[in-house]
């Protein structure tokens, strides 16, 4: 019970040291290694997930910004197109009005010209007829036809011309 033997003491010490080495090799290293590895794996996965999330967030923001940009651009394009269309329509209308005015004016002008021409021709005709009548009267002074007949004839001719 209380005996003490140095040899046994040395044996026990050596036993413990050998046990320490063996346990380290066969129990602690593999088990703690596996735990550490799993922890590492978890950490790396967490890291990855975090990175993915961040990336997704960034992409989302990018998309959102580009989307709003596109919306803005769309609005701008529409606005511009509208303005352009309006301006074009206005110019077209103005042009058309101008043209119409011109046409009307031209028509008026041609009408007037025509009238003037007609009046002119009528005038010349009348003059001609008058001259003719006068010459006729002069040449037929000896003729039995009286002045009244000549006048009638003249009127008839003029009426035909008109």
């Amino acid at each position: 019970m209380l005996q003490f033997s140095p040899f046994n003491l040395i044996c026990i010490v050596l036993n413990l040291l050998i046990l320490l080495v063996l346990m380290k090799k066969f129990l602690y290293k593999p088990v703690l290694g596996v735990i550490a590895k799993r922890q590492e794996l978890l950490d790396s996965q967490f890291e990855k997930a975090k990175a993915c999330q961040e990336e997704a967030q960034q992409l989302k923001m990018q998309y959102e910004s580009s989307l709003s940009e596109a919306k803005e651009e769309k609005r701008k394009i529409i606005r511009e197109a509208k303005a352009q269309a309006d301006a074009e329509a206005e110019t077209i209308v103005a042009q058309a009005e101008e043209e119409a005015k011109q046409i009307v004016m031209e028509a008026k002008k041609t009408g007037l010209d025509e009238l003037e021409k007609a009046i002119k021709t009528a005038d010349t005709e009348i003059t001609k007829l008058a001259v003719e009548a006068a010459s006729k009267i002069v040449s037929q002074a000896s003729c039995e036809k009286n002045d009244y007949e000549i006048y009638e004839e003249f009127l008839k001719k003029a009426g035909e011309k008109e």
Binding site: M1, L2, F4, S5, N8, L9, I12, V13, L16
Partner: peptide, 12 residues
Amino acid sequence: KDLTVTIALAGM
């Protein structure tokens, strides 16, 4: 229960 063992352990 052997004093030698506990002495060894305590000594270590």
